[in-house]
Write a protein that binds this DNA or RNA. Structure first.
Lengths: 339, 339
DNA sequence: CGCATTGTCGGCAACGATTGCATAACTAAA
DNA sequence: TTTAGTTATGCAATCGTTGCCGACAATGCG
């Protein structure tokens, strides 16, 4: 059984009381310099580290924060987590990362576990299946600091960060239209997600500004968010089967973008006939298809901002009532390979 | 301040003693059915969950395990973690995931933090920079169950899982040779990694079996393991600059594979003149380059096996002295696109 | 010299949950 | 009425740490 050294061990070894050792280690004013040196030297020699469980129990502070994301095997989220970690690390916080696989149940149990494991705060990007937010509302009402990033919700008032989904989507669609595309289909993520609706709204607005009709026949929903390849392939097939075939596909999510490209390839669709533009943070997307234009989210930066917001919530001495929703702009990567 | 309900809260609300509540919740034999029902009903109604910190402190069991990997934004590791989680989840364990970014220091602090946070065990894949294993040896000697996966080390005797790196590498090289390649260069990961040496050994053996000379001029080391694109590009440039240019490149790691393909593309290398084969678990690798052959590791499976081994270590009542190193075979994906 | 101040340090209690042991209330038998 | 036996509940200690209070000696000052 693994058993690290405790303050008590040090106290016995040095013939001191546990409280004296504790204060010596924390550099308390009441301990003489001599005793401090003896204690810290001995502590270092046995590689003493305080027990975080005991500290959490006593102080209700764990200096660790919980992260709940749908999927680690997703470039956007792993990049965002890297951003979160970079800020957390230099502020002395550790991160506990959990994934939900877009399951509402896993999301709830993970969030509850983290809360009870006394994390000091929670960073969460909602899973696509969740419609009932009461578990989060309860945690939040009980005082757990929560910051939403990317997939945010309106139902809870707190700090939030998300991408300029509307604008990114609008620009991408504009670009497709300018290149002469007339019938632009959409592969959309689950409709209960904030990002899906914003991205769809940007698409619609671009059509409208160009006096092009919005055609619901050209929209396909991928409820599994690209986790289910078959769902995407079926959507693509049904688009190709339309009598009045689309000449472009706009995709509102990373995973669906990849699956769509794969589907088009396996169906031998002509890349010139069918333009493809989508959201993607894959680090190889520029190698994928010569004419694949994409919208990239600033994932790392978003993670950093989310963590900074959470720190503000955690370390504020007075309850915060003014909340901000930051919107990070996106990068559009068009046909010209400038990189 | 977030403050979950405690057993004491229940005791006061129900006018019972904390011990009675505790025993009722744990279904102790000494509590009447009536009291049990009252207690459990009330506990459910306020969504009571026991405090894991208190339990860990008392029982020295946290039912959570620590994971230390170099990089989350790496398909192999995110897939392996998914495998770990699948087993952990159904055994009632939570996972705490940390990444080292291939920094030896981060690795040490992460491992120590996890150990002190009283995880019941550790799953680790070594970062490329680490050469001093004393911190792990100390933890292991103190009784912390550790299982190594993928990037394993000899210095600590315990359960380990890794891929059939030698065979996978041998077969891939064989395949290159059979397709007529004569001068096969290598982009190798950091030389202190177990996987690098095994993969290089497989390459050498294939050359030997085909009576081809091993030429150290054709080997390039990428110490940053592909995290530094420039390092890879420089290696590729120097290979292309050889008077006797190689006609193939074999790559021992995922990230380096991607970077190499990108470098070749940006240098306008002819894919027919220069065959590329490498290890990769990227889920889009089949879309990348028409003639890119690759070796895929069974990451998910490896994660599952590692977690099962760790469970065996944790839950064994007697100290285990017989350890096993499992070797998982790899999949070779050649030119014929069968998928 | 007497009293207050300062500097060091130890003891106790508490954080939340569990558990061995003691004890209370009660029934049934002597 | 007393005693044994059963059932239900409370007390106190424990895990590692720290806040609070009190003990004690050395020192300063009037």
């Amino acid at each position: 059984m693994y058993k690290p050294a405790t303050i008590k061990d040090i106290a016995i070894a040095l013939n001191l009381s546990p409280s004296t050792v504790s204060r010596a280690l924390r550099d308390g004013y009441e301990i003489s310099a001599g005793t401090k040196k003896i204690v810290t030297d001995y502590a270092n020699s046995i590689n003493y580290q305080s027990n975080p469980n005991a500290l959490s129990l006593k102080n209700k502070r764990s200096f660790s924060i919980g992260i709940v994301v749908p999927e680690l095997a997703n470039s956007f989220f792993s990049q965002a987590i890297a951003g979160i970690e970079s800020v957390a690390y230099e502020s002395g916080y550790h991160t506990i990362i959990t994934q939900t696989h877009d399951s509402s149940t896993r999301e709830r149990t993970n969030a509850n576990h983290l809360a009870n494991r006394s994390v000091d705060g929670l960073l969460i990007s909602m899973s696509s299946g969740t419609t009932d937010y009461t578990f989060l509302k309860t945690l939040h009402k009980n005082g757990l600091p929560i910051v939403f990033f990317d997939r945010i919700i309106d139902e809870i008032e707190t700090f939030k960060v998300t991408s300029a989904n509307f604008t990114g989507s609008y620009n991408a669609t504009q670009s497709l239209i300018k290149s002469g595309r007339k019938r632009i289909a959409v592969l959309a993520n689950a409709p209960q997600l904030s990002i899906t609706n914003e991205r769809l709204a940007g698409y619609k607005k671009a059509l409208e500004d160009n006096k092009m009709p919005y055609n619901a026949d050209l929209i396909r929903w991928c409820y599994k968010g690209g986790n289910d390849y078959q769902e995407v392939e079926n959507a693509v097939i049904s688009l190709l089967a339309l009598t009045d075939q689309p000449d472009a596909i706009f995709i509102t999510s990373d995973r669906i973008s990849i699956s769509c490209i794969r589907a088009l390839k396996s169906l031998n669709a002509d890349p010139n006939t069918m333009a493809v533009t989508g959201f993607s943070n894959s680090d190889v997307v520029d190698l994928l298809q010569p004419n694949f234009c994409y919208v990239r989210q600033k994932a790392f930066e978003m993670g950093q901002i989310a963590m900074q917001m959470l720190l503000k919530l955690i370390e504020s001495k007075y309850p915060i009532t003014e909340f901000e929703t930051r919107v990070i702009d996106t990068e559009y990567h068009g046909m010209e390979k400038e990189n």
